[in-house]
Deep mutational scan, measured.
Amino acid sequence: QVATSTVRILGMTCQSCVKSIEDRISNLKGIISMKVSLEQGSATVKYVPSVVCLQQVCHQIGDMGFEASIAE
């Protein structure tokens, strides 16, 4: 089973930030795809909930120095 959710990301300033986040999160087990939008300050994450949760994704992004939260 696959889920798609949006994560809000604060602190991104350039495409390099976007690429860094996409590269790191895409390597997590259970992540199918991730598309980060600098303009919208968010990311669309396609993932397998039984393998990885959005809290883990937000935590990983937080470790990179950005502020991440699950969009309502």
Rank of each mutant, 00 (worst) to 15 (best):
F66W: 05
H59R: 14
Q40K: 14
K46V: 15
S16E: 14
Q55S: 11
Q40F: 13
S26R: 11
K46Q: 15
V7S: 00
Y47E: 00
S42F: 10
S33A: 10
L28C: 05
D23T: 11
S33M: 08
A3F: 15
A43Y: 02
S5M: 09
E67Q: 12
Q15N: 11
S50P: 03
V45A: 01
T6F: 13
V48G: 02
A71D: 14
T6C: 10
L28S: 03
K19D: 13
M64S: 01
S26Q: 10
R8D: 09
V57K: 02
C53N: 12
G65E: 03
S42D: 09
C17T: 05
V2T: 15
L38R: 04
G11C: 07
I61H: 04
K19W: 09
V7Q: 00
G30I: 11
T4L: 10
E22Y: 08
T44V: 13
I21C: 05
D23Y: 08
K46I: 15
I61Q: 04
Q56A: 12
Q15E: 12
E39Q: 10
Y47H: 01
C53H: 13
M34P: 00
Q1H: 13
C17P: 04
I9C: 07
C14G: 06
I9S: 00
S5T: 09
K29M: 12
A3G: 04
R24S: 12
K46D: 05
V2M: 07
I9Q: 00
S37T: 07
L54D: 00
V36G: 01
Q55C: 14
V45R: 01
V45E: 03
G62S: 15
V51E: 15
E22P: 01
S26W: 04
T44M: 12
H59K: 14
T4F: 10
M12Q: 03
V7W: 01
I61P: 01
C14M: 03
N27H: 13
Q15Y: 11
M12V: 05
R24M: 09
G30N: 02
R8K: 10
S50T: 09
L54N: 01
K19Y: 09
S20G: 05
L10N: 11
V45P: 01
L10S: 10
I31V: 13
Q40Y: 13
E22K: 05
T4K: 06
M12A: 03
L54R: 00
K19T: 12
E22R: 04
A43P: 02
I61V: 04
A43I: 07
G11R: 00
R8S: 09
S42V: 11
L54A: 03
V45F: 04
T44Q: 14
F66A: 02
I25M: 07
C58S: 10
N27L: 14
A43S: 04
E22W: 07
M12H: 01
K35S: 09
